[in-house]
Design a protein around this nucleic acid. Structure first.
Lengths: 338, 338
DNA sequence: GCTGGCACTCGTATGCGCCGAGTGCCAGGA
DNA sequence: TCCTGGCACTCGGCGCATACGAGTGCCAGC
């Protein structure tokens, strides 16, 4: 096991490297931190840390930089979450309070997160399946054409157009609308399939086809893979590493445009608590030199989706985690209010 | 005025430069194009073109590159719009046909445009004010809380939550919903303000406050500046110029994140036809070395919004214009169908 | 008005040497 | 056993000088 001092050395290396973005040497370390030992001793510790794989040298005769394993230890054992200051918390609340609808909430959250962390922000829209049905609306667009509108308690709205197998009268439509809502309003979307299963049976034969069509579209809308959306912002922040990143920035942008990839990464863990995935811990190759800090958020106790940031492995983990956690908390509040 | 041959030389310079991304010299020009004259003659022409400001040398003893003015002339007089091939057109249609709702249409359009042009794509959501009301829905969330949902003929859905000054019964709500729809359904959003002006008067005194609150929220939603949204994609393509752009990429990303800036640029001209803004013609400083090709699209004859691409001034204008135009056309069709 | 020839410019690529930060190792001391 | 100062060594970065070559402008001749 690593001695207490060696852990301190590792912590110091991570902090300095994150601050300066340059490999840190033994002499600089002893000068900037009160380790109480000489550079030579620190060198020995560094050699040990390197042996264990926590740090590495970019090339001989350069300082050390933390490895993914080093960051992992730092995040798990050596650093806490830096809480937001009171003014910062107030600013977050003010900024989010002005939102007029869900799109606005998500858009503001993305901007806020990107600004606070100076990194790329990712916010997932509240999952349909984990939300509650507020209302289901059916509109007649044409004799044999119906629009289905789903509204969730989180303010999310989905709509689909359905071509009916047969003309569907206004009274039938009103009937279906009423029965549908009486069954599903206030219930979880996840339970909707069972709740509507036998609904077609109670309709006249000539209407059953249309009712089934409507229901199957409703169920399709709830299929886990399709129903998830997300918004991304703050990609400008990628250019802050332009000096060494002109080649690294590209795969990251590519990964970010592949929303499927991001959704998979975010969804990897069910745990609604804070998750930090460092460098190669991310399955996607393009994100091998980035870390993802994410956390679930939701209107009540349960998380309805995730949000987080993507940044270089060399990031300020305590600060980032603090910002992500604080934002998630306030977004949850906003959603609960609306 | 420039002689015919000099225009040919300019065209050749633009084409070569766009292809090779390197300053083009007189010798290379005569080799790659059948100008029928010697390099020396071309040199004279180039000197004249430079004199007139159509081309410039990055430094002495380098080839020439087109200036913004040169590209302008090229676009206006020397190049047409390159039509898409039949397979390309088919691919566009197939790709867009799979969309399930407006968000999906917009998302697919962005991806498509980015892929076709290999540039950054920007698609504006159909403007509310230029669309037609399909339906207005009112839902009671709590005794004194109402949700307003607007649905347009283009499939766009907006929703707002309204806190009512007084409890508002279900029957009053149904009444308002019915009257509202009978007045505005099928009408243009732009005309809605006049159409609902006197609506509160026809309600009982105790309900008037709520009716006014609903209407004023409705009108706020239609305010031009707030109601416009857009989606951006293909930012990866910016990295294709990474060699000379590590510093230019940043302001562009910044401008792209400022959606307001983009909306202003897109909205600058009312003309629904194709617009090309080259380099410094863009008011925004960060976009001084990019060109924007945009065009209006719409379900019927009238344009409901714009779409386009942002790329380096050194872009394939005929190809880009062709792709933008073709995509706009198909998006219009899709919207008309739904 | 076009062309070939020619001197000139200047940016880029290449090679070389210096500098200095940082290391590993070792012998001596607490 | 652990820490420390000293020392030789490594190696990337930087500055400088040189060579190269693409491309130009100009001019005399056709």
């Amino acid at each position: 096991m690593l001695s207490e001092r060696r852990l301190q050395v590792l912590r110091a290396i991570v902090q300095d490297y994150v601050g300066t973005e340059e490999p840190v040497g033994s002499k600089a370390l002893t000068e900037r931190h009160n380790l109480g030992v000489s550079p030579a001793t620190v060198r020995n510790d560094m050699a040990a840390l390197e042996e264990e794989g926590y740090i590495a040298q970019p090339h001989t005769s350069a300082g050390r930089i933390p490895t993914d394993k080093g960051y992992r230890l730092f995040v798990d054992k050596l650093a806490g979450v830096k809480p937001m200051s009171a003014p910062e918390r107030r600013a977050i609340q003010n900024f989010l309070d002005g939102a007029v609808d869900l799109d606005d909430v998500v858009a503001r959250t993305v901007r806020l997160l990107a600004q606070l962390t100076r990194q790329v922000a990712v916010v997932q829209y509240p999952s349909l399946t984990r939300s509650t049905v507020r209302h289901v609306e059916l509109l007649s667009l044409a004799p044999a054409r119906v629009m289905l509108v789903l509204i969730t308690d989180t303010g999310r709205v989905e709509q689909r157009v359905i071509d009916c197998p047969a003309p569907f009268g206004e009274t039938s439509l009103a009937d279906l609308r009423a029965r549908l809502n009486s069954r599903v309003a206030g219930r979880r979307f996840r339970d909707v399939p069972q709740l509507v299963e036998d609904l077609p049976d109670s309709f006249d034969v000539e209407d059953r086809g249309t009712v089934s069509a409507v229901l199957s579209t409703l169920l399709e809308t709830l299929v886990e893979e399709n129903e998830e959306r997300l918004m991304i912002g703050g990609t400008v922040n990628l250019t802050r590493f332009a000096h060494d990143f002109p080649l690294t920035i590209r795969p990251v942008l590519e990964a970010l445009e592949e929303q499927v990839v991001l959704l998979k990464l975010l969804g990897e863990t069910q745990d609604p608590g804070m998750t930090v995935r460092i460098g190669h811990e991310n399955a996607h190759e393009g994100l091998n030199s980035t870390s993802i800090v994410s956390v679930g958020y939701g209107s009540g106790g349960e998380a309805v989706a995730k949000l987080g940031v993507v940044g270089p492995t060399r990031m300020d983990y305590p600060g980032t985690m603090g910002a992500v956690r604080a934002v998630a908390r306030y977004v949850g509040q906003i959603l609960a209010e609306s």
